[in-house]
Simulated assay, not measured.
Amino acid sequence: MFTREKIMENMILRPNIKKIDKEVIKRILLEAGIKNNISHIDEPNVWVMQSHRIYLTDGGRLLLKIGINPDWTDSSTILNQVKATELINSTGIKQPKILSFSENEDKYGFKYILSESQRGTRFCDEYKKASKNEREKLYKSLGQAYSLIHNIKNKWSGVWDGDIHKKKYPIHPADFYRNAEIYGGSNKHLVESNIISDNVFERICLAWDENLSYLKQRPTSLIHISPFPWSIYMIRENEEYSVGGFSALADFMWWDPMSDVAHLIYPPYLNITKEEQDAFISEYDIPLDERAINLYMILNRLCAMSGCYLAPVKSKEANLWIHNEVKSIEKALNKLGF
């Protein structure tokens, strides 16, 4: 579970790109049973991990992700992505397969995951070019896909530690975010930056505290935690849409499915219509909890407005969205009675 402080620290102290010899990449592919020649490899990009997009002479595409920051990529981070992929595929969603991985640095000097490349188009890109009817179809497909994900249940909430049955941290996510983002982190940053008022800051803190025990007794499912429009991939076939996979795999964890729902019907940096929200709800088969959704919507808005999500949008568009979303937070607080 990342915090605003940790994300901003990583932005400042982001490691330099780690140079990986092409012959090393060839060896990793060969050991994974990939015998096709490499056509070319894109220049790597770095965020949580360093990503190399690999193109094969037969037209195949692969993704090699390398851990370069030990604080952000420990052994469980690798194993969690492997487990998340297995769980997603068990629902029938065609998440790109992981071909090989190493959770230690013994062989190559770095941890890594080699997988198939994502199929399809990012949701945000598909949405931009879609008609009104197509956008509603897109949201229906999200309702179907996240119903499958959220119907995988668990008895406890939190991040798993390489094994889906092993809890990594003893703290409940609702307590974690209270400390990290409600009293500190994003909420504190926004009030200190005069984006929200002291009154709104205090109302947010009070709303979370008054509902903390309620959130902690909510049902627990597999959730994405980062179901952003840019971390969901869509496939279009015969005028219909389906989810073809997800990025941000390391974020999958056990928690309240309404946390994802709040993101999906109130997406960051995207203003969707009520018809599109209703399209999602019409295909989503888990009962909605408006109280929980409003609380998570506030949390998600705080994180988005403070820059935690590093959305791929222009700064002018982002600033306009942030300005308008202060009203959305106040509206959600009013609904909650605060």
Rank of each mutant, 00 (worst) to 15 (best):
I66D: 15
E237P: 04
Y127Q: 01
F280P: 00
I149S: 10
K97M: 11
I329G: 08
E240N: 08
W47T: 11
L63A: 03
V24L: 14
A180D: 02
E9S: 14
E283R: 04
E43A: 11
M1E: 11
D21T: 09
K274Q: 09
S259W: 06
S117Y: 06
Y183K: 03
E126I: 01
N294G: 03
N37G: 15
K83R: 08
K132I: 06
Y139N: 01
P287N: 06
G67D: 01
P268G: 01
G60Y: 01
K155E: 13
N179M: 07
I25L: 15
W47I: 08
Y183S: 01
E103C: 07
R61G: 10
E283C: 10
A207D: 03
L148E: 02
N294P: 04
E290V: 07
H150D: 06
L212W: 01
S115L: 07
S282K: 08
D198L: 08
T85N: 10
N45C: 09
K94V: 05
K35R: 09
H150C: 11
I329R: 05
W255Y: 10
M8F: 07
K18N: 04
S197Q: 08
S115E: 14
R301L: 05
L288P: 05
E317R: 06
D71P: 05
C308G: 08
S193P: 06
G120S: 10
L62Q: 04
K168V: 06
I34F: 02
S226A: 14
K129Y: 05
L190C: 02
T121S: 14
T77D: 10
Y177A: 11
H224K: 07
H165D: 15
I225S: 13
I232T: 10
S51G: 08
P227N: 11
S51C: 12
N36S: 11
N334R: 11
D260T: 09
A174C: 02
L206W: 06
S247M: 13
E237M: 13
A130N: 01
P229R: 02
K140A: 02
K316W: 12
E181I: 07
Y127A: 00
E105H: 04
E126P: 04
I171T: 10
W255R: 07
T3R: 10
E9Y: 07
K18T: 09
H40K: 03
N187K: 04
S282Y: 03
V24S: 15
D71Y: 09
R27S: 15
S259F: 06
S141E: 12
P170M: 05
S315I: 09
K316I: 13
F246R: 05
E202G: 06
T3C: 15
V243T: 07
L336C: 04
V261W: 04
N80L: 13
A130R: 00
L99K: 01
A292N: 06
E43D: 04
H323R: 08
S193Q: 12
E23S: 13
